[in-house]
Simulated scan of single mutants.
Amino acid sequence: MMNFLSRGSDTPDAKEILEQLLEATPQPTAMAPRDCRGIYGLVDHFGDLRYIGSTTSESETFYKRIHQRHRTGSETTSHYFSRMYKTGRMWRQRNDPATKADGDIAKKLRNEFVAEYCKAVWVPLADALDIARLEQEVIALADQ
């Protein structure tokens, strides 16, 4: 994957970032970098790029956003893998005391499924860039 952190003052455009996401070899979510931010894509168990996001908050790294949020986060928010794979035996009714035991097992199974079969790609960007704006532009290009 191209690292735009080391390109000096060159600012990548949305087309370059989208190309990098599409050409990158998907990696397990646990391999996401713990020390940088940028734009990423989530790849489902079929190998299809399904989601493009970014680490807009300065406190979120790729690892925190992808591995700790999308893989294990709440099913009701924008934590893509948690929401997408909330189905069948991996379904649970969050905060329902009557189904808590089974729900905990379902969430654990879902987390393990995502860790094993789903992957991510990422493009590191310098913190000084407007990552949120670039993310919107990349998504707009991908939707064309």
Rank of each mutant, 00 (worst) to 15 (best):
Q20S: 07
A101T: 11
S9L: 15
I39C: 01
Y51M: 05
V123C: 04
A115Y: 10
E60Q: 12
R69H: 11
D96A: 09
I52L: 02
P124N: 03
L22M: 11
L129Q: 07
Q20Y: 05
L129M: 10
A115R: 12
R94P: 03
D44G: 00
L125R: 01
Q93I: 12
E112Y: 13
G47V: 01
E75S: 07
S59M: 14
Y80L: 06
G38P: 00
H79R: 11
L21I: 09
N95R: 09
Q144S: 06
A14L: 04
A98F: 09
W91N: 07
N111E: 14
V138K: 02
P97L: 09
T76D: 12
Y40A: 00
L129N: 07
L42N: 00
C118Q: 10
K100I: 00
T29N: 14
W122V: 00
A101K: 13
W91M: 13
I66Q: 02
I139E: 02
I39A: 00
E137H: 05
R83F: 03
V138M: 03
T77S: 14
R71N: 05
W122E: 00
R133F: 11
I139T: 01
V121W: 01
A32V: 03
D35C: 07
D127I: 10
L109Q: 15
I105V: 15
F46Q: 12
G103L: 09
W91Y: 15
D13Q: 08
H70V: 05
S74E: 10
P26H: 03
P97M: 05
A30Y: 14
Q27F: 09
R94A: 12
Y51F: 14
A128E: 15
Q20F: 02
L109T: 15
P33R: 02
T25Y: 04
